[in-house]
Design a protein around this nucleic acid. Structure first.
Length: 282
DNA sequence: CCTCTATGGCGAA
DNA sequence: TCGCCCTAGAGGC
């Protein structure tokens, strides 16, 4: 679930569903005791920065949520009745009226769910790199770090202080689309390459916010265009390399490779992404 | 029943 | 680099 597009999508859904309304806030599981401090208040809106989600309440209070690897936050609208929680619900936000239609949102498995002040929120945002989904993002802030780092670009793209919101799928797919080897050092990139990668991220991630999935294949490489079966997977998106180890590359047919970099699975095509080569495809 | 996996990130060693 | 945290679902025995 959770790369930046998921959090922005959630922010939109929470704002649309609960924004400006008095809400009930609770922690059925009990591990978010501070829920009571904003219970019965007006939910002013929700906003995402990278993978961080902030739900704003009066008096500069924010519920800070980070889904981590396995967290999910499901928004249910238009229900007649808010049901009993199922499983480990850390946070539940629900409409406070008793009349239908009602709505509720359940958070499970999150790495973080805390009540924060505006200062804490601002500090985390200040430490984060630019977020390609935010219209005010400045790609040169990321470039300044990339161009002077010897670290592999595959790691830099996942560093939330360099760039906010990119996770393992967008990382792998972006590198493929730009024919770039994941281990290429940041300081060997040229600015034109970075500008092209950023523009691509802006487009891909904006699409992810709309669709709720990560699709990265170009028209000529869709299942329909290639006459291949669609991807069957729990996240569903059409991709070039992510979790396609051993399968044929959609462009050149080579077997997709995998390796572990900084504890995360890395996927690339050994032919399309030869080391120290990089040219944008198409 | 157990083990493994997952689009993440932290802190200790 | 490793262990650990969060949760649910899939698969093996």
């Amino acid at each position: 679930m959770p790369e930046g597009h998921t959090l922005h999508r959630l922010a939109h859904a929470l704002t649309a569903t609960f924004g400006g309304r008095v809400v009930q806030v609770g922690s059925p599981q009990g591990r978010f005791a501070d829920a009571r401090l904003v219970d019965g208040q007006v939910l002013e809106g929700a906003e995402a920065w990278g993978k961080q989600l902030f739900i704003e309440f009066p008096d500069d209070r924010f519920i800070h949520v980070h889904l981590g690897l396995i967290g999910r936050f499901d928004v249910h609208t238009g229900v007649d009745e808010v049901p009993e929680p199922v499983g480990q619900v850390r946070l539940r936000v629900s409409t406070s009226s008793t009349a239908a239609p009602q709505a509720y949102a359940d958070l499970r498995g999150a790495t973080a769910c805390d009540l924060w002040t505006r200062e804490l929120r601002d500090a985390v945002i200040a430490r984060s790199g630019p977020d390609p989904i935010r219209p005010d993002a400045d790609p040169m802030l990321a470039w300044a770090k990339i161009k002077r780092s010897k670290a592999p670009i595959g790691g830099l793209l996942m560093d939330q202080g360099v760039l906010a919101g990119v996770g393992n799928v967008y990382r792998a797919e972006l590198l493929f689309r730009h024919r770039m080897h994941p281990l290429r050092p940041g300081n060997t990139l040229r600015i034109g390459q970075w500008r092209a990668m950023w523009a691509d991220l802006v487009e891909l991630m904006a699409q992810g916010v709309v669709t709720g999935r990560i699709d990265t294949v170009r028209t000529e490489h869709t299942p329909e265009a290639m006459g291949r079966p669609p991807r069957v997977d729990d996240h569903g998106g059409e991709v070039y390399v992510y979790r396609r180890t051993g399968q044929g590359c959609h462009v050149c047919g080579s077997r997709i490779r995998t390796a572990v970099l900084q504890d995360r699975n890395l996927f690339w095509c050994p032919q399309c992404q030869r080391r120290f080569r990089s040219r944008t495809v198409g």
